[in-house]
């Protein structure tokens, strides 16, 4: 038997997941709306807040909305290909992960294809729509180089989020439940990634660059595009390199995941 490419396996598994999901037709629209509601309310919140107060930490609505739109687009790049990772916790807890280990296919690939990301199409629509609209309105003189940088930054941001979620998947092999941790990460990113993160003070900002690397998702590369790197207490070259953080965070998260996998305890008999 010849080894197969992971791409072929990915397609096979994703197709099965899609067929499984199409059994529940009503769900398509409601889940699609679910994704939009999640991110949309936050955008609505920022709109209402800045409509009333004008500036936040010295940033106006156009800049804040641009940062948030970048984050939404990054989020779409995480949630469309990798969104099924959120089911890992449950699969590990009720022993369904057994089945993943019984097949000659990379476990991470199987986790990612556990569910077809129907709902995430809403996220993608919202994310790229918002990026187009607010990128247009943002105070940036767009050049091909800047657009290229934007694309890199959005991909990097998606990888940061994927890396964080993969880390939690690894954690689920040793913790009883990582549910609230994941929700915490998710809601913190959603709620606070739109703000200019430096406004929370230096210590908090550095924490967002290291412990919980949310600053790389959109804020740091956005300061480069908005020409506001002077707001950031980091050397400009380092801020400019921030899209690379995605690769680093993802590799760290994936390494942690594979290191923790042997500690799976397979509940039940």
């Amino acid at each position: 038997m010849a080894e197969q490419t992971w791409l072929r396996q990915y397609v096979v598994l994703e197709r099965a997941a899609l067929r499984a999901q199409l059994q529940y037709r009503v769900n398509f629209w409601t889940t699609l709306m679910g994704g939009v509601a999640y991110q949309g309310t936050q955008l609505l919140f920022l709109g209402v807040l800045l409509g009333k107060f004008g500036l936040i930490g010295g940033w106006g609505f156009s800049a804040v909305a641009f940062v948030f739109a970048m984050r939404l687009a990054s989020h779409a790049l995480y949630v469309v290909p990798f969104g099924a990772l959120r089911l890992t916790d449950e699969m590990v807890r009720d022993g369904e992960f057994d089945r993943v280990l019984l097949r000659p296919v990379n476990p991470f690939l199987q986790l990612v294809t556990r569910m077809f990301p129907l709902m995430s199409l809403g996220d993608a629509l919202l994310g790229f729509g918002a990026l187009a609209v607010f990128g247009w309105q943002a105070p940036v003189d767009w050049t091909p180089a800047k657009i290229g940088y934007l694309i890199l930054a959005v991909v990097g941001g998606g990888l940061v989020e994927t890396g964080i979620q993969t880390f939690f998947c690894g954690l689920s092999f040793v913790a009883t439940s990582t549910f609230s941790l994941r929700i915490f990460a998710d809601s913190s990113i959603t709620q606070f990634s739109g703000y200019p993160l430096t406004m929370f003070g230096r210590a908090t900002f550095y924490a967002f660059c290291t412990l919980f690397p949310m600053a790389f998702i959109s804020f740091l590369p956005a300061t480069v595009l908005l020409d506001r790197t002077s707001d950031v207490p980091l050397p400009t070259w380092l801020t400019t390199l921030s899209p690379l953080a995605g690769v680093i965070v993802f590799v760290l998260g994936y390494t942690f995941f594979t290191k923790m996998m042997p500690r799976y305890t397979s509940p039940g008999s």
């Binding site: 099965a16 067929r19 499984a20 059994q23 022993g95 369904e96 039940g268």
Partner: peptide
């Protein structure tokens, strides 16, 4: 015996 390895919905 306790747990299926098949695709539940398919």
């Amino acid at each position: 015996g306790q747990r299926t390895q098949l695709w539940y919905d398919l």
